[in-house]
Nucleic acid binder design. Sequence first.
DNA 1: TAGGTTTCCTAGAGGCATTAGGCAAATGAC
DNA 2: GTCATTTGCCTAATGCCTCTAGGAAACCTA
Lengths: 187, 187
Amino acid sequence: MARVGMTAERLTTAAAELADEVGFENVTVSALARRFGVKDASLYSHIRNAQELRVRVALLALAELADRAADAVAGRSGKQALVAFANAYRDYAKRHPGRYAAGQLRLDAETAAASAGRRHTEMTRAILRGYEVPESEQVHAVRLLHSAFHGYVSLERSGGFDHSGEIESSWDRLLDVLDTTLRHWPA
Amino acid sequence: MARVGMTAERLTTAAAELADEVGFENVTVSALARRFGVKDASLYSHIRNAQELRVRVALLALAELADRAADAVAGRSGKQALVAFANAYRDYAKRHPGRYAAGQLRLDAETAAASAGRRHTEMTRAILRGYEVPESEQVHAVRLLHSAFHGYVSLERSGGFDHSGEIESSWDRLLDVLDTTLRHWPA
DNA sequence: TAGGTTTCCTAGAGGCATTAGGCAAATGAC
DNA sequence: GTCATTTGCCTAATGCCTCTAGGAAACCTA
């Protein structure tokens, strides 16, 4: 039986692509096997189980998002950096809905610690350098920003904003308001 | 064959309870059938399919959350109302993780319009009465609040805050900051 | 080339979702 | 109470998904 050259990395990449096409929840060992023209059982030479596949896609998504955000933020500071980061974040979610969803997977502590997730935090801290948020408040400011971005994108994706339109202007206003809030961080 | 008295409502309630126990994604027709001591196929006398079951649990969760929030907000205004609403929201998510997850299900436009989702929006608008956010900006302010609350709860649930502690103080600061932001809503 | 390792397959088991038809309980009409 | 109709549960079956174990062939190394 000729080998098709599957590797865990190839499977992961294909699963990520499939996630964007059919939704992360519909990425299955069976669907992936069909994509490679092999039988389901063949995949277990490369991945332990379906959960490992999901975790791999999640890690890939977190890394991609961090790269995109880093590119967008490079050379910018203050409001420009904030807006660039936020737009990279939302843009990624819109272009790669399945990967974005994968990035929300709950990971075990060890895996999470090794993921690109901490790069997101570091980048956000770097953005805060353009503002005068006290050191003791930085963890709170980081969480406010991540909550607002993720919350907006999440509600947008689940249709929470479908009835009232103005989605783009709400996003722009959100960024304005957050910028102002950071510039006048309350004591 | 004696009847166990299943109805769509009873199935929905049981599914919601099961969601909180094992996670919304693990609520299946099979698991529910086991809970009632009947065979899987018997449930189809009462529900059309698994998707209908999920939608029903989603609607139940949205309604419960709206009731909780309404109770919490009653008789309060300004920052107190904001904090009460937000705390009801997060509290519900913590006590009923499975139901909360169900509430995020993407619904078709008709179902969404008939759901308790709009009550959330109305309540938030009522909270804004305690602030001087211009009418034209209210949709943006509502979305900022919902994004922040949902984002925080969501990231908390998926372990995004596990590495740095201070989760309660970050929440309290978030509410302070949002209150201040509303009081000085930027033009 | 020989031998060891790895990858693909088959077979199978168990879980999940759903349909169709049968039988008995429950309900409604007289 | 009797009878007809409706409804709810079951069985049987189909198809999809996940995963294990063992076998055959491809691949790699010495």
